[in-house]
Computed example of a mutant assay.
Amino acid sequence: MIPRRLFTSLVLAAVLLGHAPARAQSPADVALARELFREGATLAEGGRWAEARERYARSLALKRAPLTLYSLGVASREVGRLVEALESFRAFLVEMDPENATHKSYEQPARDAITALEKRVGRLDLRIVPAGPRALAVRVDGLDVPQAALGLPRIVDPGEHGIVVRAEGYREAKATAKVGEGEQIKVTVKLEPIHAKGPGPVKPPIVEGPEPERPIAPIVLLAGGAVAFASGLTVGLIGVQKASDAPVQDGPEAAEARRLALAGDIVGSVGILAAGAGAAMLLLGKPQDTPAESSGISVKPFVTPTGVGLVGRF
């Protein structure tokens, strides 16, 4: 807590400064600035630093005075606004009157405060990727960051800070950064183009499994059909030969020959159908995990005294 004697001195100094010819101001503004300064001093004496800071800031806005800057620095430091406090003390050293004994008495305390605050403030090193986009606008804690300040460490109060970046042709980017006392951190904000293509479809992983089974049924049908056709052709030719050798057209030899020819036609037709079905199944790539009976087709070989063949069912 600042002693009452100190604040009395500050008030008296502010009154004296009210008559300094720094710049033309209305008497009403000067009087109001003086009253706000007195209120701030009273609040600070009672430890009500947030309210005191508000009064000092308003007083400074009405009339800029070195001791108001110093008092604002003290109040800002007490409420944790270290950057504002640091700049207030620096401004006091710039604007103080070296010939003014009251100002001179606060010069060393201001320098000591600056040294301590420079070690306590945080630093935020903000980088934008890609660099140099058009119409770049950066805000930290709701305040615009000048273009000239980008790419350089920026002093900030310890704590969490919100960052918003906008640029022509890019989506708005937001980030947060938490900075401790005396800490410097680097934050990189990556901008995403508005018309950027999204990630392509994810290819499913290639899983190597066992080799597929060979299509047995189509091969059996194709081979069996070929055998049946050959057998039918053979039986048919035998029947034709016997019919030619028969002594009479209506005798038993001729009847037997006709039966053989008919059997040859049937077996040959079955062979053609079976071979066609097998070829179609191979061409269409139909899975063949079941025997030929599952497709409604059965082929059985037979042997007779006159030859061999296959019997098919469709």
Rank of each mutant, 00 (worst) to 15 (best):
D250V: 01
T102S: 09
K63I: 04
E160Y: 02
H103S: 10
V227K: 12
I128S: 02
V235W: 03
R55W: 00
P218A: 03
S88A: 15
A280C: 05
I206Y: 04
Q288L: 03
E78F: 05
L237W: 02
S76P: 03
V207G: 00
P153K: 10
D157R: 09
Q288S: 14
Q25A: 14
L136Q: 04
A228M: 01
F89W: 09
P193Y: 08
R90F: 05
V164F: 04
A279E: 00
A135T: 06
A13S: 11
R4Q: 14
E208F: 13
V145C: 05
V79D: 00
A173I: 02
S88C: 13
R77E: 14
V270A: 14
P21L: 11
L273K: 11
A254M: 13
R64H: 15
R5P: 00
N100E: 09
V248Y: 12
A279L: 08
L282I: 02
P133V: 03
H195N: 12
G159W: 00
L310F: 14
G151P: 02
A113F: 03
G309C: 03
L16T: 12
K186T: 14
P204M: 09
M1T: 14
A52P: 01
E172M: 13
P27F: 07
G169Q: 07
R77C: 01
A228V: 03
L82I: 06
M96D: 02
A255T: 12
V311S: 15
H195R: 15
L69T: 01
A22Y: 14
A292K: 00
A31L: 13
F92G: 04
F92E: 04
M96R: 15
P291E: 09
V299G: 12
R111L: 08
I2D: 12
W49D: 09
R23N: 07
I206T: 15
P158T: 07
R34D: 07
L69E: 15
L233N: 07
S269N: 06
K174R: 15
T42R: 14
A196R: 15
M281D: 04
G236W: 03
A223S: 10
T306K: 13
G271F: 01
G182K: 08
N100M: 08
D29L: 12
R166H: 02
S71I: 02
Q147W: 08
V299R: 00
E87L: 12
E172S: 06
D125Q: 13
G73W: 09
P158C: 06
R64P: 03
E107P: 01
P205N: 12
Q184A: 13
Y70P: 00
A261Y: 04
D289C: 02
A131L: 07
W49F: 15
V267A: 09
P215S: 08
I219T: 08
V179I: 15
G151K: 11
G232T: 01
K242I: 07
E95N: 10
G271D: 01
M1W: 11
A277F: 00
S231Q: 07
S26E: 08
G80K: 06
E118C: 04
L260I: 03
G307T: 03
S298P: 00
E168V: 03
V138W: 06
M281G: 01
S294R: 13
F7P: 01
P153V: 06
E78V: 03
D97T: 09
G182M: 07
F89T: 04
R4F: 08
A31M: 05
A57N: 01
D112Q: 14
E183P: 09
P109Y: 13
S105V: 11
A223K: 13
V121G: 08
A110H: 03
F229E: 11
E208K: 14
L150C: 06
